[in-house]
């Protein structure tokens, strides 16, 4: 059995959610590591798109931002923000988008703007960025963030980016072209969405994590199926490739378990 960290587990889960040939819109950090890992393993024909403008990037060095010029290396196109967010994203030409969240509710709606009141926020967060655009228009959304009960709230302080809003049909009613969130990956578990209610459902727990722990660490009623599988452990191949992508541990950390 390979040794791995919970961060590595998250990156591998992210990679496994990408299918070959898909167009993937990834932000910097673990999402992009996941997308790059998918590309060097089971999804060699995935096309990675960065908001900053580069499309089908082949960069060998890890990028530190979506505007990093490392991403120009052998890219198929370098077309700028208007085209990545407009032509590709809003035009419905992206299959899968990765997002993070500071708060998420049971329908997968997310907040990355502020905690507390808008007029006197307790915490001012970085903001939407392209988050709302991605959440509205990408074919499906994969959410990745570290597990903390305070993030899984019954009611968001602010809805930055739409998930399934108030349930079945609500995205369609507003004309959102994207399919909404499909998967949540944390350092403890994976969650998907019940097709009938569009509410978050536990999909698998990572090795060493119990279903009870997850249930106690969300602040809404989590759908828990009768049988919850354990997330398969990352293989040596995937872990090795992951470390080749991030040899300095910039996103993976310095190896803390």
């Amino acid at each position: 059995m390979e040794e791995y960290t919970s961060t590595e587990m998250m990156a591998v889960c992210g990679a496994n959610a990408v299918r070959d040939g898909e167009r993937v819109f990834a932000g910097t950090g673990l999402p992009v590591l996941g997308a790059m890992l998918a590309k060097v393993t089971h999804a060699p024909n995935a096309i990675i798109i960065y908001e900053g403008g580069n499309v089908d990037t082949q960069n060998k060095d890890l990028a530190l931002s979506v505007a990093d010029s490392r991403l120009g290396y052998r890219a198929a196109a370098s077309i700028g923000l208007i085209e990545t967010l407009g032509f590709l994203m809003m035009g419905g030409r992206v299959d899968v988008g990765f997002l993070g969240a500071a708060q998420i509710d049971e329908y997968g709606n997310i907040n990355t703007s502020y905690i507390g009141d808008f007029d006197s926020p307790k915490v001012r967060l970085p903001g939407s960025g392209g988050g709302n655009d991605i959440a509205s228009s990408a074919g499906r959304i994969i959410l990745m963030f570290t597990h903390d009960a305070r993030k899984f709230v019954k009611k968001l302080d602010y809805l930055t980016s739409p998930g399934h809003l108030s349930g079945p049909g609500s995205r369609e009613k507003l004309g959102l072209i994207g399919g909404g969130p499909a998967l949540v990956v944390t350092d403890k578990c994976q969650m998907d969405f019940d097709p009938n209610t569009k509410k978050i459902r536990l999909k698998s727990v990572h090795p060493g994590v119990t279903v009870d722990w997850v249930n106690e660490n969300v602040m809404f009623d989590l759908i828990i199926p009768g049988k919850v599988p354990t997330t398969p452990e990352p293989t040596k191949e995937y872990l090795d490739k992951l470390h080749q992508l991030d040899p300095q541990g910039i996103y993976l950390g310095k190896g803390q378990k």
């Binding site: 809003m90 809805l159 930055t160 739409p162 507003l174 004309g175 959102l176």
Partner: peptide
Amino acid sequence: PDFRGSDL
């Protein structure tokens, strides 16, 4: 083209 559904 869209954007609806958020609190913006």
